[in-house]
Computed example of a mutant assay.
Amino acid sequence: MIIYKIFNHLKISIVLLFYKILFRNKLKLGKNISFRKNFNIIIENSGDLKIGDNCFFNNNCSISCLGEINIGSNTIFGENVKMYDHNHKYKNPEQVIMNQGFQIGKIKIGNNCWIGSNVIILNNVEIGNNVVIGANSLIYKSIPDNSLVKSRGQISIEKLYNRE
């Protein structure tokens, strides 16, 4: 088990170094970031991605950044989480959608969040601090601090901590 941990740590360090070289000043990484299989980052155009300290990305997570994505410290991601800070434009029916460009926005995720498996986070969303987002949720609007998001057909937001 210790050999596996050493190998995994070495692999993570090499991949993060590769990303730093590839994306240069478009990518800012905190300390102690870890991830599992098939973690993928895409930064294009004027994209700017910041990931805070102590973040964990489970299997098959991906970040697609054309604008700005900021992930706070101590945030963890379940399997298959996808983040897109942009969306295809589709206003002109005379033109192929893929040739119409993108509407570019931002995503901000606070500190100490848990984003459950199979969550998709879309552009122009701000997720506060201490937020838990349940599995299979589509996040298309902002979520306040200290919230629990559950998805059963429709998104419901509740206070995570009942403080009186």
Rank of each mutant, 00 (worst) to 15 (best):
M1K: 10
I2F: 12
I3G: 08
Y4K: 15
K5N: 14
K5C: 08
K5L: 12
I6S: 12
I6R: 08
F7L: 13
N8K: 13
I14G: 04
I14P: 08
I14R: 02
I14T: 01
V15Y: 09
L17H: 11
K20R: 13
F23G: 06
L27N: 09
K28M: 14
L29C: 07
G30F: 11
K31L: 08
N32F: 05
N32W: 03
N32Q: 13
N32I: 10
F35E: 01
F35Q: 00
N38A: 10
F39M: 01
I41V: 14
I41E: 07
I43Q: 06
N45M: 02
S46G: 08
L49T: 08
K50L: 09
G52S: 01
C55L: 06
C55V: 12
N58L: 00
N60L: 08
C61L: 02
C61M: 01
C65L: 12
L66I: 15
L66S: 04
L66F: 09
I71K: 13
G72C: 10
T75E: 15
F77N: 15
F77K: 12
G78L: 14
E79M: 15
N80C: 14
V81E: 12
K82N: 13
D85F: 10
H86K: 01
N87W: 03
H88Y: 14
K89M: 12
P93L: 09
E94G: 07
E94A: 12
E94C: 05
Q95V: 14
Q95A: 02
I97A: 01
I97C: 03
I97P: 00
M98K: 12
N99T: 04
G101Y: 00
Q103D: 14
Q103L: 11
K106Y: 13
K106W: 05
I107D: 08
I107K: 04
I109F: 09
I109L: 02
N112I: 07
N112Y: 14
W114F: 07
I115Y: 05
I115A: 06
I120N: 09
L122P: 00
N123H: 10
N124H: 10
V125F: 11
I127N: 05
G128M: 07
N129L: 07
V131C: 05
V131D: 04
I133W: 07
I133A: 00
G134E: 06
L138N: 06
I139H: 01
Y140W: 02
K141C: 01
I143P: 02
I143S: 03
S147W: 02
S147L: 03
K150C: 04
S151Q: 14
Q154G: 01
S156E: 15
I157R: 09
I157L: 11
E158C: 10
E158H: 09
K159F: 01
K159M: 02
L160H: 14
Y161F: 14
Y161L: 09
N162V: 05
N162S: 13
R163V: 13
E164W: 10
